[in-house]
Nucleic acid binder design. Structure first.
Length: 477
RNA sequence: GCACGAGUGGCAGAGUAGCUAUGCAACGGACUGCAGAUCCGUGUACCCGGGUGCAAAUCCCGGCUCGUGCUCCA
């Protein structure tokens, strides 16, 4: 297997390389100061897709993603509600974890938290101070970027000068004790009433960037194979991590591969709280369902910006329903069979595999999935059970296992059981109505016939008139 | 200003040199009393201008437009 993955640092697709017998992956997770939004979902799904694809290809992974469970924003939120900061962070982490489960995002191997990593954060800071890369100021400990200027712009191509000129007025409030505004905080001394931890420099809390460097070191050592997160983290967060980790450990590269997912816009505008166009994950799941949301979010490759709008959701809803409907129609996941001998399905597999190997192109994978759904629908109506079973097998493997957009077999079992029991409970009524309608139709009493059709629809029964008579199905499950 | 990315049919969105992307919508057809679901079929698509090639949406140069970032950010 040769997965070519876009690497932000070298700005090209590169075959993934790794040392050891497993690929180590670290993704920067959420800061749980408010409910998570669909951008967080996209990030999680992007890395879930990576892990799934590697595992599907028999490559072992160790995937770690963190919770930044202490931050200025969390402290602010806690103050506002008058509660302990842990109440804020725990609440949002719990909700996030629940959403991830609904979205079929597989569990990471570890979810380290900043508040549980203080010791290793401090020991990294100590090392950086000892080595002369960091200095202690009045309000905290800072990393001095002039000690490693060559690392500037590793991901974004920016130079020291650019940032100096571009940062403008915001510089002033980012740390009073800095020698240079491009320096960044490793440790912030606590103000009265703020949560804090002891350190050799004074009580305080970690800066934003150092935590990830420390957690990567805790789990993977000096280097990690693939590191990433949202593309908005390239600068300054990930560049700061490169400074810290490489200076601290004296080994580079810190990450062999940098992977960044694209942002989500809402109706063409950047998603932001001030615009009031924020979709939280739970809102989106309530609106369209978790797997439809996942479908919508992998319908574009992970690096592409997504414009989140009604058309996108309608599309996703329709196509996802077609996928699930076709599998139900075929008799559910238990009918799955191998597709080995089928040329069309083998060809679809080939295209999907080569798309996924080319920087995880889930859009191509979705396109192939839709093609197979069409083949399945054709097989279903032709009564070609062997072909339909092969299609179900294919879909379970790729749309299910790889893309994660098919619910588990319990879902189908429940739905089908629910449907069966519903059907048997209304069977007599439906049969009577259809008989009545047939009589109406035979006398060309169309008004009466349509009236009965509406009654049936009210029961959740849809009918189709075929040459073999009227067929019906219960579809409102 | 600087950096990064993008410009494909009505819409969304693949495709990095020659062969149907795919889906939605539209239109025509099968089935139907009519619909619905499903299936079959149809459509001058590649921002502009140069260049290289037998051949360019795809490579090169120039331009235009848009998006994002520049220490809150997935």
């Amino acid at each position: 297997m040769t997965l070519r993955l876009y690497d932000t640092a070298s700005r090209r697709k590169r075959e993934i390389s790794y040392s050891g017998d497993e690929i180590t992956i670290y993704a920067c997770g959420i800061t749980p100061y408010s409910p998570s939004h669909i951008g967080h979902a996209r990030q999680a799904i992007a890395f879930d897709t990576l892990v799934r694809w590697l595992n599907f290809n028999q490559i072992d992974t160790r995937y770690v993603t963190n919770f930044t469970d202490i931050s200025d924003t969390i402290i602010d939120a806690a103050k506002e509600e008058g509660v302990d900061f842990t109440e804020i962070s725990n609440r949002h982490i719990d909700s996030y974890v629940e959403s991830m489960k609904a979205l079929n995002v597989r569990k990471a191997d570890a979810y380290p938290r900043v508040t549980e990593s203080i010791e290793s954060i401090i020991s990294m800071i100590e090392k950086l101070v000892d080595k002369g890369n960091a200095y202690v100021a009045d309000d905290g400990v800072y990393f001095e970027i002039d000690t490693a200027p060559e690392k500037y712009g590793a991901l974004t191509g920016q130079t020291l000068e650019m940032v100096r000129s571009g940062a403008g007025g915001r510089v002033d409030k980012t740390g009073l004790g800095k020698r240079d505004h491009r320096d960044f905080a490793l440790w912030k001394f606590a103000k009265p009433d703020e949560p804090s931890w002891e350190s050799p420099y004074g009580a305080g809390r970690p800066g934003w960037h150092i935590e990830c460097s420390a957690m990567v070191f805790d789990h993977f050592g000096e280097q990690v194979d693939i590191h990433g997160g949202g593309s908005d983290l390239m600068f300054p967060h990930h560049e700061a991590e490169i400074f810290q980790s490489e200076c601290c450990h004296g080994i580079k590269p810190f990450a062999r591969h940098w992977m960044h997912n694209g942002m989500i816009n809402i109706d063409g505008e950047k998603m932001s709280k001030s615009l009031g166009n924020f979709w939280t994950i739970t809102e989106a799941i309530d609106a369209v369902g978790a797997l439809v949301l996942r479908y919508a979010l992998i319908n574009a490759p992970y690096r592409q910006p997504i414009d989140f709008n009604q058309v996108l959701l309608d599309d996703a809803k329709k196509n996802h329903a077609r996928l699930i409907g076709a599998i139900m129609e075929a008799g559910g996941p238990t009918t799955a069979a191998s597709w080995g001998g089928n040329d069309i399905l083998t060809e679809a597999e080939k295209k999907l595999v080569s798309g996924m190997n080319d920087d995880l192109n889930t859009r191509v994978a979705i396109a192939e999935t839709q093609s197979v759904v069409r083949i399945l629908n054709r097989a279903n109506s032709a009564g070609d059970e062997s072909l339909s079973n092969s299609c179900v097998g294919w879909l379970l493997e790729f749309a299910g296992n790889v893309l994660g957009i098919i619910p588990d077999s319990d879902f189908f079992a429940n739905k089908m059981a629910e449907r069966d029991s519903k059907i048997s409970s209304i069977m007599d009524e439906v049969k009577a109505l259809i008989e009545k309608r047939d009589i109406a139709r035979s006398t060309k009493n169309w008004a009466e016939a349509d009236n009965i059709r509406d009654q049936l629809l009210g029961l959740g029964v849809s009918i189709q008139d075929t040459p073999d008579g009227t067929k019906w199905d219960y579809s409102e499950v």
